[in-house]
Design a binder for these strands. Structure first.
Length: 494
RNA sequence: GGCAUCGUGGCCGAGUGGCUAGGCACAGCUCUGCAAAAGCUUGUACAGCGGUUCGAAUCCGCUCGAUGCCUCCA
């Protein structure tokens, strides 16, 4: 199904700062690159939000019928700790601290990353390349940039010449900066050493003898510079000009700006048509920071082992919470906000559970076609998941009314409603019904049904003491009974 | 200090020149043995001060505040 032919999708392009109609380079195909994690420590929640935002975008493109190649890298070569004399690889530094091999650190935190995002139901990207696996490609790009005259070699290192580049190109167009202003505002901190200009950045850095991660190159043993890996991997798998490049807002400058410069210097054309930036996640209104303690890891949220939140929150609830905010907005995480989201999530999932048991009627009290169009309109407007969710709750209301027999839908409309809800809730938003996924659900169901029957017998005998005991004890165990027109049902509450 | 984004009702969070966001919480009602769940009803918010306009939360200016970047960072 090539839904994209009937939907005009708009995306916020950071290059223009405006919403633009998305037109892929090749009809029906989307190439998307997203800057992945640096695997030198546990992935944190802010990272997860960014990757989740692009996961949702990936999912929606696929839902529209595009063939998507989604490349998200693993940065396992680390970045420079300092851009001056003490060039030291971040991963190498951590390794020394812990007295283990750099690749052991990489492996450990790559596993942590994968486990965490799997819990959050992120789809694997089409390609997940590593920086260390693309050293040769990076060296080749440096050669090309040197040949074009946009870089220079100093003492075994290679630097990108921003000033020369700016004479023929526009350095700063993504982040709205002017090179002249940046030069004027340069802080007079440490001496610049090898660089001609403080704005220049390393393409290749000479490795000191104690540096563990090192590769041979035409300029001596060393390691690739800050921004090069993304240029190497994005162009290798997506081409010199591709559709979408994404990442967190904090990467806009200098990382993405430098990527543009490298690619333009090398190929003479702009690498990316649409730059998408996901916004930050704050915690209790403040930025997350390990040093101040205003920080929480995903595993701590899921387990409840933290001093910030009153209870554990399931990955599904966290995902729903994040989908309730637009990806370009700052989102503030707090206990109250999560509690509210958890209730909303439960309400949505219970309606999803009711949906299957609904039967068609003689006429339709709810215009499903128009509602469906609204859902698509929301997503087509720069992936507006909060608006989509608002529409989903509109459907929840009708689902509950139909369940109670107060409204009805003809079979065809009901089928359309089911299909559309399933698409958006599970495929696009990537939500999972965590209660339905629990083990032993069949036997649990039998046990609770038994208690429901006993309670109803007690109620018929007006033995309310017994019936209320059953109800209240079950609730204390996290099982809530719901008396409806057609008998009693139950759901798992936390 | 510079650049950027933003500041919405009790909480979270959309919208963005005139028309209902939505969720959670609160209150009333229906249902119920009582509750819960579900449904219905109610909320006239847009940081402050000026300006543009017939009309601004929405555009412009200033002030204050928050967040991000300017140094590895989603």
């Amino acid at each position: 199904m090539q839904l994209f032919k009937e939907h005009e999708l708009k995306v916020t392009n950071s290059l223009s700062g405006k919403k633009e109609v998305f037109k892929p380079i090749k009809e029906g195909y989307v190439g998307m690159y997203v800057c992945g994690p640096t695997v030198y420590s546990n992935v944190h929640l802010g990272n997860c939000r960014t990757f989740m935002s692009f996961d949702m975008i990936f999912r929606y493109f696929k839902h529209l019928g595009y063939k998507v190649r989604y490349v998200r890298n693993i940065t396992d070569a680390g970045h420079l700790e300092n851009d001056a004399d003490e060039g030291e690889d971040k991963i190498a530094k951590k390794a020394k601290l812990e007295q283990i091999e750099p690749m052991e650190v990489v492996q450990r935190y790559t596993v942590d990353f994968h486990e965490t995002i799997k819990k959050l139901n992120l789809l694997p990207p089409s390609i997940e390349p590593t920086a260390t696996g693309h050293i040769i490609e990076q060296i080749e790009i440096i050669k090309e940039i040197l040949d074009k005259g946009f870089a220079y070699v100093v003492n075994g290192s290679v630097y990108f010449d921003v000033v020369t580049f700016n004479e023929s190109n526009d350095y700063g167009k993504l982040s709205g900066r002017k090179l002249e202003d940046m030069i004027a505002n340069t802080r007079e901190l440490t001496a610049q050493g090898e660089k001609k200009n403080p704005q220049d950045f390393a393409l290749w850095k000479k490795a000191e003898p104690q540096h563990i991660m090192r590769w041979p190159s035409p300029w001596g043993d060393g390691f690739p510079g800050w921004h090069l890996e993304c240029t190497a991997m994005s162009t290798k798998y997506l081409g010199e000009n591709f559709d979408i490049h994404g990442g967190g807002m904090d990467l806009k400058f200098p990382h993405h700006e430098c990527e543009i410069a490298q690619a333009e210097a090398r190929c003479g054309q702009t690498p990316v048509n649409y730059w998408l930036h996901a916004n930050m996640l704050t915690l209790n209104g403040k930025k997350m920071s390990k040093s101040t303690g205003n920080n929480i890891y995903p595993s701590e949220m899921f387990s409840g082992e933290n001093d910030i939140l009153s209870k554990p929150f399931s990955p599904s609830v966290v995902r729903f919470f994040m989908m309730q905010a637009h990806y370009t907005s700052i989102l503030d995480l707090s206990n109250d906000a999560l509690l509210a989201s958890e209730k909303g999530y439960t309400k949505l999932m219970e309606a999803m559970g009711s949906l299957d048991g609904l039967n068609g009627g003689n006429n339709s009290d709810f215009e499903v076609m128009a509602w469906k169009a609204n859902c698509y309109a929301a997503m087509n407007d720069d992936f507006n998941t909060p608006i989509l969710i608002a529409h989903l709750f509109e459907a929840v209301k009708h689902i509950n009314l139909i369940k109670e027999g107060k409204e009805q839908l003809i079979k065809k409309d009901l089928e359309l409603l089911k299909a559309t809800m399933n698409s958006f809730v599970y495929d696009v938003l990537g939500l999972i019904d965590s209660a339905a996924n629990q083990d032993d659900s069949a036997s649990l169901e039998g046990v609770v049904q038994l208690l429901i029957n006993l309670r109803n017998q007690a109620r018929e005998n007006k033995d309310f003491a017994t019936s209320d005991t059953i109800r209240d004890e079950l609730l204390a165990l996290g099982i809530q009974l719901k008396d409806g027109k057609d008998g009693t049902t139950f759901s798992i509450v936390s």
